[in-house]
Design a protein around this nucleic acid. Structure first.
Lengths: 179, 179
DNA sequence: GTGATGCATTCATCTAGATGAAGAAATGAA
DNA sequence: TTCATTTCTTCATCTAGATGAATGCATCAC
């Protein structure tokens, strides 16, 4: 995703900004959704459901792009909170810029490749949420984000998987006990 | 999505084909994933999990595009079955054609819009699978596919929602009883 | 150091939805 | 029409994971 940096440097409206652990970049109810490129650090996006429970939609370590895709695309108010899990350097830009008419055609095609990739991953996520038990989802998580287990608390991993921290603890116990 | 037809007509490799209810367009294990545009009819894509259970990833009525996005993007063998729920007229084409260098830039940008839209929908699907009870997911399904309840059997709707036909039957019973 | 706050683990319950079985209704083929 | 197949519903269990509470550790502020 490093080629993105180059593009982002071209966007006259892109803002580079430093954030601290705990800072919010966007919250539920905001009217204007933004797109964030993580130059360095770690973000996450999540909702809080009707019962007050947190559900992490994704983590975004260095090099990733994170946004409320639904709000962006359908011009709805933001549903996803986005905040910093570590001090982070972020580039805030307009989604449209990735497909701006000023960019050369090949760049645009390159950028759509990123969307395609994300679609593939999301497809997998849906299929796993429907068809795989929590332990398989946990193993897939470890594969997708190999270095995150050391950087984020268990309870966040649990809410990413769609289970409670207690359930994750039990699963980890089982894995450990079976060597 | 009607503008797509036009583009598809330009693709020299796109094949138009007639299928019958029950025909398979693609199955688990195929090596070459394709992309299908539904000119008329109704398709679905689904996996069969390790316990032999069916999970429908999506329905594709007239005007929709359906494919195994993960297999396409990462050049993996196909995981999703795709078959016809009704007699259908299908255009089979290469995903790359949507972003072919021969197309005018505006067309490419237009096509990425479709990807974005799909991403937004998938985000919502993930969030609902994690955070909403089956009844809410059912109502959202009714919203997304208003005319499908009359065209597809309940058991398929259930496997789309990620629950069993029995559970869906109970939910419908509750909704009916509460007027 | 002390106290406070947050995190992980364990255990005893509880529950949404799964499973399996059976009957009723609908669909389809001959 | 009749027979077979599939679909839908209901009910009696069962289970993965939720909930809530208690305990033991860390971490941080002061």
């Amino acid at each position: 995703m490093e080629n993105l940096t180059e593009i982002l440097n071209l966007d006259p409206n892109a803002k580079r900004k430093q954030f601290q652990k705990g800072d919010f970049l966007q919250r539920d109810g905001d009217f204007q959704a933004s797109t964030f490129y993580v130059k360095k650090g770690l973000l996450r996006s999540y909702i809080i459901d009707s019962k007050g429970k947190e559900h992490i939609f994704m983590f975004a370590p260095t090099g990733w792009i994170i946004a409320d895709l639904e709000a962006l695309e359908f011009n709805e108010p933001v549903k996803l909170f986005i905040d910093c899990l570590e001090d982070s350097e972020i580039i805030i830009f307009n989604k449209d810029y990735l497909f701006n008419a000023d960019l050369p055609k090949e760049k645009i095609v390159e950028n759509t490749q990123l969307l395609y990739r994300r679609l593939g991953k999301l497809q997998r996520r849906v299929l796993m949420l429907m068809g795989s038990p929590a332990i398989d989802r946990y193993n897939y998580f470890l594969n997708t984000y190999p270095d995150l287990p050391n950087r984020v608390p268990q309870r966040m991993i649990a809410t990413y998987l769609g289970i409670t921290p207690q359930a994750l603890s039990t699963i980890r116990g089982k894995i450990a006990r079976s060597h």
